[in-house]
Structures are given as structure tokens and as C-alpha cells.
Design a protein around this nucleic acid. Structure first.
Lengths: 348, 348
DNA sequence: TTGAAAGCGCTACCAC
DNA sequence: GTGGTAGCGCTTTCAA
């Protein structure tokens, strides 16, 4: 028994305010006052209470406290992101945390994991835990199931993907503008056969990016060829296979617009496998680590997911603080970065 | 007012079991039974209750329920990771979620954000919320502040970095073994001047990796040269600067062991800037997306952070389930991957 | 300045 | 099968 203090295997009940009050020989309410920094306690009494609390290793129980506290606030926010393992989601999470943490909120985080049912299950679980607000990335095709909550006044901010069927605050990237800029850049380098690879078509982001792609085509006087658009790519592997197929087709594209970060990774692998990475131009929607160290460097339009997260967090804080202005959608701008892959000219 | 149902700006109080009971004209206890799927309710009564609950959009309040429920469990686990924006942390989070979610636990997630004070603040906040257990990545130099919790029987599992000053469960990568294997690989390719770049020296991971590096050197009959070891690199930028300095020194290394993923990224940038990426060998501790698409591909020993997260989650579940076996440290193995950068031979 | 009592929304227990 | 009552740990209210 080298470390007897720690050797306890059975669960010992945690001390309560009553225990602290008994030890300090004061009323429970006085303990509450001291530990919550409320006024009207003599320094001597406060001192006694502090000492008793320290001796018992007492930590206030905010769960019990919030039950009675005005408005029943739990100071907890529920966050649903695409997948915590995806750096894009991680950045959103980081942005949300940056803002909420300093205001005393904790965040319950969970992933959709590409599962539409899970979206509702997670929201439901959050509601049962009585979160004060929600920040949601969605995957189901409509969110009318949230109407009762919205009408009850629960603050909900959507992030990355706009909600469908409900009116609520949202923070999204400039999907149309970014895709348009990326595609126009390829057209400016002489390309006419530009493939567009995108995620599942029911995602508002994927839809908008294809929209931006088509907009740039028509503005650039390039005829739209549906055979160059592949949607519903859910992974890097799927994108890789799609590109490999395109390259072996009759009229392969001279440029590729990859409308999402995982898709870009699949495209890069396919191009390298075919030895075409210097022959076919590539623009990516979204950036990733070491995109600048590849050969060629990957040109992209990039969103700022961390900023999107903190904007969503700020909006939620405002709602929590009583902001009753109409719901709004904040469009977070994209940034254009040229690194080589997007500047490969079309063959003559 | 196109959508009057949703137009409410003032917060409406949520219905309680009492409301449901009144509407269904049953006792509150019966509502509890139905909503918790307890036996001894006639189908007709259950039906009435279900209907009333649906009509009021009632969701059970698990916060209030857990307060009275046996053991006061909150079915919540606190998770602290290095930084949610780091893919490595994201994978740990994903692994933890995989395991706990299916067992009815929600996870409160937060980042250390490279701030030692924050570690304790986060833990404290979690304790106030009465989490049932903790999964922690630490950054402070010792965790004795957790002794009272440990002795009280609160399950705590450390992940990625071993705790200091306390005995508790941990899941860590094979830092010594991986570093040793990476370094030995470089030695096998003829290298004698191998630089070692590592994170802050008070981190157990960084310490162990340098230990593995030195072990491989002595096993390979290579003399240790302290001038080749740079520690306390906190970012890709710092690593990049360190490599640039090494390269312009009198006796530049012929190979580099980068002991962490962000460091590897800095090394890659420095080598490319100097045009030396095909001249100097590089082994990375930890892998990253597109490491295979770089030129040369980046050889590495890689941990499996997602598996580490789920192992930690499983251990915690076991403890929560009453497992009272002595604390243990699980060492998650590393995998060696050759892609080119580690196979560059030493110059003659 | 202090504390006793009521009650937050629910579950445990026990009576009917 | 059903429901009243006590009480989880705290905050609110109000009296002392």
C-alpha cells in the first residue's frame, strides 16, 4: 500500500452543502452564499465555510443548482458536427469553444457520423439534458422536427449547412461564390472541359457549389456538360475512383473542380496514380494541411471553419442574452489561394 | 406572419411531467413509468400518456431525473483533449464517442489549448457538472490535484500522455518503441548524423520519443550528439525555423526524426524551401492525410488515435461498470510505413 | 447577517 | 395497476 490515499476502489459519496454547513457550523444557505460569491457574509463566516469546503474537497453541484435557478438554465450548449475526426469539424468545434467557454458554457459535442437518424437522436438527447441552445450541422433533408423547439424560443444556430423547412439563424460559407471563383479561375486558364466532383446532392453545400460551378460556366460562355459532373461522392476513395473513371473515358476533362476537402484528396491520389498531376488542373474547395507542399501545390478557395464556429457561438450567445431580432444567415467569405495546380493551362 | 408557429421570440416554459399527467388524467408516477418503459401499466393508460406527451412535445428531463436516481449518475463523461482542431485529438474524440455513445453517455468535450491552467479549470467544471468519469489528455506537469477524486472512486482514464504523481488507468502510444524503430530505420540506411526534433520536454510523449531515439542510436553504435536534438518545438513554424537553422550549420544532419505531426509539417516545408527533400531522409512520428502524395512520400511510424480513444472509452466503461482491478497502462502499438522519405540513403 | 422552509422536476418507496 | 409522499442538492423567498 504505497499510496493508501488513492487506493479506494468503492465509490465514496460526494459531500453536499449540508456536510459543509455542518462542518462549518453554519446554515446551508450561508454556504451557498459564500461559494457563489454572494454579498452579506462576514469575512469570518466566509473563511470558516471556505475552510470546511476545502477540507471536504467539496465542489458545488451545478446540476442541482440549475434545477432551481431562475429559468432553469443549464449553461450547457449542444453541438453537432459532421464528424469530430474531420479537421473541418474540429475547427468549427474549436471556434465554438473559443466563444462559449469564456462565457461559462460547456459544450456537449457529438458527431453525425453520416447518419441522418443520428441527427434527431442527438438533438433529442440534448433536449433531455436541457441544453440552453443548439449549434447544428445537419444531414437530414429537413429540420421541421425542430419547429416545436424554435417556437418555444430555444436558440438554435445552424452552421455550415443551411436548415430546410425552418427559419433560423445560420452561419455558412460562401459556397456559390467560392465555387464560382474557383471555376472561373480554371476557365481563365483556357479550360473548357472542367469536371465537377461533389458530395451528396441533398446537402445544401454540395448543391450550392455545383450551382456556383454552373454559374461560372455560363458567365464564361462554356457549355454545361452533365457528364462532367459527378455527385454523391462520400469519401476520398469514392472520389479517387470517379476521377480514374473520368480519365479513362472518351473525352477526359482538362481540369477538375473538387468541391470538398476529402474529395480533393481522392482526386490528388487518382491524378498521381495516372501521372497526370502536372497535366490536369485542379481547384479545391477547402484547404488542408501541407496542400502547399505537394507538387504541384494545390490551389483552392478556402473557408474559415474556425471563424464560422465562433460566429455561430456569438450568435447563440446573443440569442441567449435576449436578442430577438429576426433570424439571419451569415455568409462567411471564402479566400482564394493560388499554389500551382489551378494555374495549369489547358492544352491547345 | 408566414410561419406563426415559429414566430415566438419569448421563451415558453417547457412542459413537465405534471403537465403531461394532468392532460392524460393520470398520476405523475404513471407518466414516469410509461416514459421510462417500466412495467405494470395497462396499454390503454400508456397510450393516453404517450398521446399527451406527444401533444405537448414533452421530452423527459434527464437532469432532474438523475438527481434522484440511484447513485446520482449523470450519464455524462468529461473529455479533455490537446486541441479539438488537431486531427489527432479529433480522432481520439471520435474513438471515445464511438464507445460511449452506444452506452447512453454524452460527452462534454473541451480543449487544453496548450494552457496548463486550463486543464484544472476544465476538470473542475466537469466535476461541478458531476460527470460520471473523466478521460484526460494532460499538459500540467503533475496531476496530484486529482488525488481526492481518485480516492473517492471517480473513474479517470488518461489518454495519449501518462499521468504524473498519481496511479491511474492510461492509454498511450508506444512512444519509445516507435521512436526507436524510426531511428533504427534511418541508421539502417547508413545515417549517422540524425537530427531529432521534439515537442516540449515536460510532455511524457516528447520525453519518451527522445528516449527511443537515443536507444536506437546506442543500439546502432551511433554516438549521441546533443547538438542534433532540438526540443520544445510547439508548432510547425518553430520546427521549420529549427530545421532551417540546422541546415545552415557547420555539420548539417543527413537525416531527421520528427517526433510529432505538426513538427513533421514544419520539417517538410523547411526541406522543400532548401530544395533538400530528396537529399535528407525524414521519418515522422504520426501520420497525416496526403503524406503518401508528397514527393517523396513521408515515411512514418503512426499511432492509431481513434483506437486509443476507444480503448480509453472501454476502460472507462469497465470502471463505471464496477471493474475494481488495479490501474493499468495500455500501450497502443505503432505501425511502420515506408513511403520514400525514410529510405533516402546517407551520402557516402 | 443569517437560516428555515418551500420547491425545481423527477425517481424511490410504499400504500392502496 | 396506480398514485401519493418523501427527498435528491440546490436556490429562492422570506422571516428573524
Amino acid at each position: 500500500m504505497s499510496d493508501p490515499e488513492q487506493r479506494s476502489t468503492t465509490r465514496t459519496p460526494r459531500p453536499t452543502m449540508r456536510d459543509v454547513a455542518a462542518l462549518a457550523r453554519v446554515g446551508i444557505k450561508t454556504v451557498s452564499r459564500v461559494l457563489n460569491n454572494e454579498p452579506n457574509v462576514t469575512p469570518e463566516t466566509a473563511e470558516r465555510v471556505e475552510r470546511a469546503a476545502a477540507q471536504l474537497n467539496y465542489e458545488i453541484n451545478s446540476v442541482a443548482g440549475n434545477l432551481r435557478r431562475t429559468g432553469h438554465a443549464t449553461k450547457t450548449v449542444g453541438l453537432v458536427v459532421g464528424h469530430v475526426a474531420n479537421p473541418f469539424s474540429g475547427q468549427i468545434h474549436a471556434g465554438v469553444e473559443d466563444v462559449l467557454y469564456s462565457h461559462g458554457y460547456s459544450v456537449l459535442a457529438a458527431s453525425l457520423d453520416d447518419d441522418a437518424d443520428r441527427e434527431q437522436r442527438l438533438v433529442r438527447e440534448f433536449l433531455r439534458r436541457r441544453v440552453d441552445g443548439l449549434i447544428l450541422t445537419t444531414i437530414s433533408d429537413e429540420q421541421t422536427y425542430l419547429l416545436p423547439e424554435l417556437s418555444r424560443g430555444l436558440p438554435i444556430v445552424f452552421v455550415d449547412r443551411e436548415p430546410s423547412g425552418v427559419t433560423a439563424d445560420a452561419v455558412v460559407g460562401d459556397n456559390i461564390g467560392g465555387a464560382r471563383e474557383a471555376t472561373a479561375h480554371l476557365i481563365a486558364h483556357g479550360h473548357r472541359r472542367i469536371a465537377c466532383l461533389a458530395d451528396r446532392e441533398f446537402l445544401s453545400t454540395a448543391k450550392r457549389r455545383v450551382e456556383g460551378y454552373r454559374l461560372a460556366l455560363s458567365e464564361g460562355g462554356v457549355e454545361f456538360d452533365p457528364s462532367l459532373v459527378t455527385m454523391n461522392l462520400r469519401s476520398a476513395d469514392a472520389a479517387q475512383a470517379a476521377v480514374t473513371a473520368l480519365l479513362s473515358g472518351e473525352h477526359p476533362p482538362t481540369a477538375i473542380f473538387a468541391a470538398q476537402n476529402l474529395i480533393t484528396i481522392g482526386v490528388i491520389r487518382a491524378l498521381r496514380a495516372a501521372g497526370m498531376q502536372h497535366a490536369i488542373a485542379l481547384m479545391s474547395f477547402d484547404d488542408f494541411e501541407v496542400a502547399d507542399s505537394l507538387d504541384p501545390g494545390i490551389s483552392c478557395v478556402t473557408q474559415d471553419p474556425r471563424s464560422m464556429g465562433s460566429l455561430a457561438g456569438k450568435k447563440l450567445l446573443a440569442r441567449l442574452g435576449g436578442d430577438h431580432t429576426p433570424a439571419s444567415t451569415i455568409i462567411s467569405p471564402t479566400t482564394f489561394i493560388a499554389r500551382g495546380s489551378g494555374e495549369i493551362p489547358a492544352p491547345l
